[in-house]
């Protein structure tokens, strides 16, 4: 109990067990809230799902309407001495219950039945991941070396950074039409958008990381006779590697935010296409399942990368 209180203080202490408890609660509390809203009729449920239209002509079974309108319809029918419509309180169609989303999610992995143009969540998602992967790889191949050079060679920094700063402020979607004109309508312009969205940030972020290397280490290695490429490969790169790794993790998340834009240009594709299609059919359980999939995969990769990073860079972790 004392530990529990301590963990709420500013810079307070927590033990391992409490951290796990909080970790579980972090997942459980939002889910509980969602379940409460979905399953407890008195919590929200602003609409009514019609089960029996009664005497009202314009009502159909399975329709949703606002409670006020429903009550007026009931009153009208009662006044006309006709059978009153029946209905149960429900949430708007855009808020499916956890159970519905879960079953859509399970369905996505178990069935191979085609759903719309992209055949299933998994197929759509695999396509998205391919786009992200190539976009991020291409961006990194250019951005990481350039960033390191900007951070360590003043002339390169002066030459490159002003134009990078200029392009950084142009929103990646602005390049959409251009990318399609140059690269066609299939995957190439989508990858290009991810590259454009990531690369310029990447150069600046990594340049900054490189600049933050403890300069005393560079000076020490110089007095030991290191210079040029050997200084770069034996001191600068190993020294910044843990921070570089962390930057790449953050930038990968960044790449994901450009996915939505990328997939809407040219021929729509991937998870974005799937989501927009399903939303059009009002299959919000599928929409939520797709969103959950993105979140889970994103969080999962980041956690895996975090664990790998901790294992690779023990010296940094223990150095604080």
């Amino acid at each position: 109990m004392q530990g529990f209180l301590a963990s709420w203080r500013l810079y307070g202490r927590t033990d391992r067990m409490l951290r796990n408890v909080f970790g579980i609660l972090a997942v459980l509390l939002p889910l509980l809230l969602w379940s409460a809203v979905s399953y407890l009729p008195f919590v929200w449920h602003p609409q009514v799902l019609i089960t029996d239209p009664g005497g009202e002509e314009y009502l159909e079974t399975g329709m949703r309407m606002n409670r006020v309108d429903f009550l007026r319809a009931v009153k009208e029918m009662q006044d006309q001495h006709q059978p009153a419509p029946q209905g149960i309180p429900t949430n708007p169609v855009y808020l499916p219950s956890p159970g519905e989303v879960l079953s859509a999610f399970v369905h996505a992995f178990t069935s191979s039945a085609p759903v719309g143009a992209e055949h299933s969540i998994t197929q759509a998602f695999a396509h998205s991941i391919r786009i992200i992967f190539w976009g991020f790889v291409i961006s990194s191949v250019m951005g990481v070396p350039l960033g390191i050079m900007c951070g360590s060679i003043p002339a390169v920094a002066r030459l490159v950074e002003p134009s990078v700063d200029f392009f950084r402020y142009l929103p990646a979607p602005a390049f959409g039409a251009l990318a399609v004109a140059i690269l066609g309508i299939y995957d190439a312009p989508k990858i290009a958008i991810i590259v454009i969205g990531t690369l310029f940030q990447q150069i600046l972020v990594i340049a900054n990381t490189t600049r933050k290397l403890d300069f005393a280490l560079v000076e020490a290695s110089r007095t030991l006779g290191a210079k040029g490429l050997r200084l770069l490969f034996r001191v600068v790169i190993p020294g910044i590697l843990p921070d570089l790794y962390r930057d790449q993790r953050i930038l990968l998340g960044w790449a994901w935010t450009y996915l939505i834009v990328a997939e809407l240009i040219g021929t729509s594709s991937g998870i974005t296409w799937f989501i927009t299609q399903q939303a059009r059919y009002q299959h919000f359980d599928n929409v939520f399942a797709a969103m959950a999939l993105i979140g889970i995969v994103g969080l999962g990769t980041d956690m895996v990368l975090g664990v790998i990073g901790g294992k690779l860079f023990t010296w940094k972790r223990e150095n604080g």
Binding site: A220, S221, T223, G225, P238, G239, L241, K316
Partner: peptide, 20 residues
């Protein structure tokens, strides 16, 4: 001109390479 291995230096700060 410039630093060289003929003049070694020990700094006030700890400058061992932490990754080695």
């Amino acid at each position: 001109r410039g630093p060289g291995s003929d003049r070694g230096m020990v700094f006030q700060k700890y400058t061992l390479f932490p990754w080695l």
